[in-house]
Amino acid sequence: MPSVLMAELQAFESPVKEPWPDDVEMYVTHEVEQILLPESSSCLAVQAFFRMCGLRYKLQMRINAESMSPSGKIPFIRCGKAVVSELDPIVSFVAHRGISLTTELSDVEKSDMRAYMSLVYNVLGNAEQHLMWCDRVTFLEVTYPRFTSAFPRPLGGILCYLRQRKMRKKLRVIDWESKDLEKVYSEIDNCCRVLSERLGSQKYFFGNKPTELDALVFGHLFSLLTTHLPDSRLSAVVHTYDNLVELCSTVENEFFQRIEGSVSLK
């Protein structure tokens, strides 16, 4: 979702012809003990996007990355004087530097890509938030300990419940809060079926070259597949779509080989 402070982006009207600087830093929270499912998806998506573009970045893990971000969401990048957060603004920021993955797509394909990206944001993004904050078991077993790990004792709990209240309110206005677990799983299943149908037997969504959509889908599905949740049905749902799993492992093998200790797909 876009944020108000993203307004700074409007300043970059004309494309900049400078080369990509060396000191770009990407800030995320600690991957192993702190990060939550939705955040992990978007961090992975942005990382995949950078790697697909062949751009250099340094990954910085900070406990308070969320408070540092201009929109309150991670990941965000620092490039010279600019600070940009979330995938869409980062993609347009990079495009202003003359780097884009979609130059070869036709106009119709570009609008198709946008449509599928809205689908992923809307369905997978909201489903992940729902699992983290509205499902009682997952909240107590995963969200609460992970969220509170970054704060001293009573403060963490208070902040966690405040965040839960906010997220539930947010989901309520878009009619997601009242859904039960079955409905959420069927939404995820539906979304995966649609993506799988579109992907077909191609290597990436639009032919042989990766796009933002591949980065985004990879970010979400890879997190869903590799995160351990109390209910294992989630990864089972994704595993039923062979070509999507195939896509995830292709992206992982081609772009993420150098990450040490990354979790691999089976």
Binding site: D112, A115, Y116, S118, L119, N122, V123, R193, V194, R198
Partner: peptide
């Protein structure tokens, strides 16, 4: 319904 229409539906709803 085909995949495209679901994707476009979501786009209309979010944008």
């Amino acid at each position: 319904r085909c995949a495209d229409s679901l994707a476009y539906e979501q786009m209309v709803h979010t944008r």
